[in-house]
Nucleic acid binder design. Structure first.
Length: 353
DNA sequence: TACGCGTGGGC
DNA sequence: TGCCCAAGCGT
């Protein structure tokens, strides 16, 4: 009983704090499940500062789920360009079509129906169900893991099966059934603004006298996460065709990183190569055969593009040639295609004359 | 189940 | 600098 009263106090404190401290974010002006869904997908593993502009772009270009469903995947990816984790955009578009074609355009209204949408997992389904439909399903995101791990002094790994269940159960016990959406947003906002990963504001935290980690000086050690990821090194050699009349060649990636995004023809190697090695490369030879070419390396220093799980060391080779057998596009049209940041950065620096 | 999947910011 | 982290999900 004592534990229950304490928990009630925490939940209500979080809500009271939230009501007087919440940020004025654009998706907090609506309860339209389509827009809440949009915001939640955009904010997956993404900071508010980075995602906000994309939320505006998407709600302006696609005000309703019908507009999104009627777009092409390429248009959606182009709008998503620069935000990363592009499967979010592909799944968003897929699910929009599903809602329009199979649900008569009506957004699903329960957790169990919402989670059936591709790209929507436990967190996102809980967020939408609680915010838009008052269903008492607790969200557990990075913020919630942190607040709960510290406050209750829980050292179970947050990325273990056991930890995922444990934290979900605790959050579910804490949720305020009468205002689940407000509680969910309150605990997340608290994690983002007070109980931060670095330099949390413990001194003035209203929960510090009952926070286990604070009392035991364990704030820096919680939440606990298992192991680290290994960074793989990859070596990309992009072949930038430079042909008469400002013509070039691009291709669509079919799998892995940047799936369905566009790039220049790629020769991936197991290590950095110089021009001699490029010229004797089999794929390079297939591209140009015995044609007369002029090859220039755009970047003298390797461009390192860092992703979560891999570092891509890149060279852009500009190859002048009169013609080719591949499909070509005008250089001026290249901006229409969705491209990864690595290619976008090149495009903003390189001048095709 | 463990791993693949982007980009940017903070220290 | 290198590492961690950010309103996670799919397979």
């Amino acid at each position: 009983m004592h534990f229950y009263i304490i928990n009630m106090k925490i939940s209500n404190l979080l809500i009271q704090w939230y009501l007087s401290n919440k940020r004025n974010l654009p998706w907090r002006k609506t309860l339209d499940p389509y827009k809440i869904w949009l915001s939640e997908i955009i904010l997956q593993q993404t900071r508010v500062d980075q995602g906000t502009a994309y939320y505006h772009k998407f709600t302006e270009n696609f005000p309703t789920v019908f507009d999104l469903a009627n777009a092409t995947e390429e248009e959606v990816l182009k709008l998503w360009q620069g935000l990363g984790y592009y499967s979010r955009a592909r799944n968003l578009h897929f699910s929009a079509k599903y809602i329009v074609n199979n649900l008569n355009g009506e957004f699903p209204s329960t957790y169990s129906e919402i989670i059936k949408l591709k790209g929507v997992g436990d967190y996102t389904a809980s967020a939408i169900a609680s915010i838009c439909f008052n269903e008492a399903t607790a969200v557990v995101d990075g913020n919630v893991y942190r607040v709960l791990a510290r406050y209750f002094g829980i050292s179970t790994a947050i990325n273990s099966t056991k930890g995922i269940k444990e934290f979900k159960n605790i959050a579910q016990e804490l949720i305020v059934a009468e205002q689940p959406g407000t509680f969910n947003q309150a605990i997340m906002e608290y994690g983002a603004r007070v109980c931060k990963p670095q330099n949390p504001i413990c001194d003035t935290c209203e929960l510090n006298n009952s926070c286990v980690a604070f009392g035991k000086n364990e704030i820096q050690n919680l939440p606990f996460k298992e192991k680290k990821i290994k960074i793989k090194k990859r070596y990309f050699n992009y072949i930038v065709f430079k042909m008469p009349n400002k013509i070039t060649v691009i291709e669509k990636r079919i799998s892995g990183i940047w799936q369905n995004m566009y790039q220049f023809p790629l020769i991936e190697t197991s290590k950095e190569i110089d021009i001699e090695e490029l010229l004797s490369n089999k794929k390079f030879d297939e591209l140009f055969q015995q044609k007369k070419i002029n090859v220039k390396l755009f970047n003298n220093d390797l461009i390192v593009h860092k992703l979560s799980h891999q570092h891509i060391y890149t060279k852009f080779w500009v190859v002048e040639v009169d013609n080719c057998e591949l499909d070509t596009i005008k250089w001026s049209e290249i901006g229409k295609y969705p491209v990864p940041k690595l290619v976008d950065n090149f495009l903003s620096e390189y001048k095709f004359n």
